[in-house]
Simulated scan of single mutants.
Amino acid sequence: MSKVRETVNLRKRTMKNGGQSLYLDWFFHGKREREFLGLYLGKDKVQNATTMRLAQQLKAKKMEELIAIEAGIAVKKFEATSISFRDYALEVASRYKVKNTVRSFTSAAKRIPNKIMLASVDRACLSKIIRDAWGECSQNAQNSNGAFLKLAMRQAFKEGLVPQLPDFSGVVPSPKPGNKVFLTLDEIKQFMAVEPPVDKCGASAARRWFMIKDAFLFGCFTGLRYSDIYKAKWGDIQDGILITEQMKTKEEVRIPLSQNALQFIPQRNENVRDEDRIFDAIPGRSCHADIKLAKLVELSGIKKHITFHCSRHTCATLMLSYGADLYTVSKILGHTNVKTTQIYTKVLDEGKRKAVELVPKI
């Protein structure tokens, strides 16, 4: 048995990007075996520590299996009795590239009690985790965090760490449709007429004010998220179509630019390259742009709480209200499921209901 323990090694292989891939190798019954763990070390020391703990757990599990085989005990090929669900969920969270996604998933993973092993997560266990961690939170918070826990379990099943995937249907509450705030066409015209407060600004600050205004209006006619407007480059526009990979979903969208959208794109001079950003004066984070946007909305006289994301809602409701079909709108918005787009039809239906109820009863 001690011989087996000495022959299972946790090793690292340096990759082209400078990171390291972790794998196990061992010599057993005259044969050398190797198993890549799908775990990687990068520049984040805190995350590396979590990854190494998980790798050590997998190493310990492999040693247990070999010892059992040596003793003639039948072992299951798939088992995760020694792997913490919390550590594994943290590792899954670290694999994503978008910082906000990593931050959100990591926060969810940290709420998992450390004593819960991956192999013990069944329907009742997952339900209890969600109830204990987010029971006092909103229905949407329970949905988004619970969905990540389900995703982590699906990944564990794909990687062969658990023998089967439990039935989690109904464990995570459905999301509650939010109040989609958007501008009507008349309100867009009202917003277009507003003059940014640039009297005492320098040229650079004034340019930022005007470009934030134009970027918001551009979003009203393209449906792009702020992150995608921010990174849009001149070279992304080909034959009047903006082609981009969405930051959130990593899906490619192709958006024909209408005359309404084109009028809000800055003038391109001869020194601008294809790799330069179109809206190069807007801040990197939407929350910073929202501060100036709120001032512009206030100056316009519009009595709504408008953020940059409302431009996306505005685009969807405008297209649907003027006759666009649901499937086409879903493709323009880059929704992976048309059910997401159906939320906007409910918003329009509510508006129609209020309209017909304005007629007095006779």
Score class of each variant (00 low, 15 high):
residue 1 M to P: 15
residue 3 K to S: 12
residue 5 R to C: 14
residue 5 R to Q: 15
residue 8 V to W: 03
residue 8 V to P: 01
residue 9 N to L: 14
residue 10 L to K: 03
residue 13 R to V: 07
residue 15 M to C: 08
residue 17 N to L: 01
residue 19 G to T: 13
residue 22 L to Q: 06
residue 26 W to S: 05
residue 28 F to L: 04
residue 33 E to K: 00
residue 35 E to V: 07
residue 41 L to H: 03
residue 43 K to Y: 05
residue 44 D to Y: 06
residue 45 K to S: 11
residue 46 V to T: 10
residue 46 V to A: 10
residue 47 Q to H: 04
residue 55 A to H: 07
residue 57 Q to H: 13
residue 62 K to Y: 06
residue 63 M to F: 09
residue 67 I to R: 15
residue 76 K to W: 10
residue 77 K to P: 12
residue 82 S to K: 15
residue 84 S to G: 04
residue 89 A to W: 09
residue 98 V to Q: 11
residue 104 S to Q: 13
residue 105 F to C: 05
residue 106 T to V: 10
residue 110 K to H: 13
residue 117 M to G: 09
residue 120 S to A: 13
residue 121 V to A: 03
residue 123 R to K: 11
residue 127 S to F: 01
residue 129 I to Q: 00
residue 131 R to V: 05
residue 134 W to P: 01
residue 135 G to Y: 07
residue 138 S to Y: 13
residue 139 Q to D: 06
residue 140 N to H: 09
residue 142 Q to A: 06
residue 147 A to S: 12
residue 150 K to W: 00
residue 151 L to T: 12
residue 153 M to L: 11
residue 153 M to E: 08
residue 160 G to W: 02
residue 164 Q to A: 12
residue 166 P to S: 03
residue 169 S to L: 07
residue 172 V to G: 04
residue 176 K to S: 10
residue 180 K to V: 09
residue 180 K to F: 11
residue 182 F to R: 02
residue 183 L to F: 02
residue 190 Q to H: 13
residue 195 E to Q: 13
residue 197 P to E: 03
residue 206 A to V: 07
residue 208 R to T: 13
residue 208 R to S: 10
residue 209 W to F: 04
residue 216 F to E: 00
residue 217 L to P: 01
residue 219 G to A: 15
residue 222 T to Q: 02
residue 224 L to Y: 09
residue 228 D to Y: 01
residue 230 Y to K: 02
residue 230 Y to G: 01
residue 231 K to N: 07
residue 231 K to E: 11
residue 232 A to N: 09
residue 233 K to V: 06
residue 238 Q to N: 14
residue 241 I to D: 08
residue 243 I to G: 08
residue 247 M to A: 11
residue 247 M to P: 07
residue 248 K to L: 09
residue 248 K to Y: 13
residue 250 K to M: 10
residue 255 I to G: 00
residue 256 P to Q: 11
residue 257 L to E: 03
residue 259 Q to M: 11
residue 259 Q to S: 11
residue 262 L to H: 08
residue 263 Q to P: 03
residue 269 N to V: 12
residue 273 R to T: 11
residue 273 R to V: 08
residue 279 F to R: 00
residue 279 F to L: 02
residue 284 G to R: 02
residue 285 R to V: 12
residue 290 D to H: 04
residue 297 V to L: 07
residue 298 E to V: 08
residue 298 E to C: 10
residue 302 I to T: 09
residue 303 K to S: 15
residue 305 H to C: 12
residue 306 I to C: 09
residue 312 R to K: 01
residue 316 A to V: 13
residue 324 A to Y: 05
residue 324 A to T: 05
residue 331 K to L: 07
residue 336 T to V: 12
residue 338 V to I: 14
residue 347 V to L: 05
residue 348 L to E: 04
residue 352 K to T: 08
residue 353 R to W: 00
residue 354 K to C: 06
residue 358 L to F: 12
residue 362 I to K: 12
